[in-house]
Design a protein around this nucleic acid. Structure first.
Length: 214
DNA sequence: GTTCTAGAAC
DNA sequence: GTTCTAGAAC
């Protein structure tokens, strides 16, 4: 009869096997290759993008544009690699300078995570307010405020005096840094948890437009 | 890297 | 009971 249910045909484009999804680890590469993804600044060799989940009011990533560099340990002290690190730093400093011109209260640090999650070398340029809803976990906090965050200048100096960079940390040491207690990066007091830390950070914010009456 | 959420911490 | 964190994600 017409009311008989017909077995629904499987769509031909629906595979029965599991399609290996593109790993989240390659997201940065996908972003910089995507012509529709906004680029903050581009030079011959590097590109700057806004971090997708900024951990502060200003948070940018600077990446190699024409070269796949998996991590810092892929680099050697050849002139090309040294100049790449310097160009990443230089573009990072340029962006920090421009952002400071827009908001003079911002302070920036430039550095690399000792054990990054995302593939493709990326330099963090991050303002030190850490005022962001995306900053949610102890790991987030410690990855930017402990020695897990390695200054760009330090990396450049290290590679200039060595053939290759030693792996910056063992897995154990990385986890130790990421799991350490929460300390304020400004006054070093220890905070109980993330919400308490966020409340504490407000006390370090510059007082502006309050009682001055300007 | 994030999302989700169970269960620890309060 | 609510807040908060830590670990799985097929």
């Amino acid at each position: 009869t017409s009311s008989m249910t017909v077995p629904k045909k499987r769509r031909v484009d629906e595979p029965t096997f599991t399609v290996p999804r593109m790993s989240w680890k390659t997201g940065l590469l996908a972003s910089i290759r995507d012509v529709n993804f906004p680029k903050r600044l581009k030079t011959n060799n590097v590109v700057a993008i806004a971090d997708k989940y900024p951990k502060a009011r200003c948070h940018f990533l600077i990446l190699p544009l024409n070269r796949y560099v998996r991590s810092l340990t892929s680099l050697t002290n050849c002139p090309e690699d040294i100049s790449l690190l310097k160009e990443l730093d230089s573009v990072g400093q340029q962006i920090a300078k421009e952002e400071k011109e827009k908001d003079s209260s911002l302070e920036f640090r430039l550095g690399y995570h000792a054990a990054p999650s995302m593939e493709l070398l990326h330099l963090h340029v991050i303002s030190q307010d850490f005022d962001s809803r995306c900053l949610k976990t102890k790991k987030h906090w410690n990855s930017f405020t402990s020695d897990f965050f390695v200054p760009s200048s330090q990396i450049i100096l290290a590679l200039e005096s060595r053939r290759v960079l030693p792996s910056i940390v063992t897995d154990g040491h990385a986890n130790e840094m990421l799991n350490q207690p929460l300390y304020c990066h400004r006054c070093c007091i220890q905070l109980k948890n993330i919400p308490t830390l966020k409340e504490h950070l407000k006390t370090h914010r510059a007082v502006s437009g309050g009682s001055s009456g300007i």
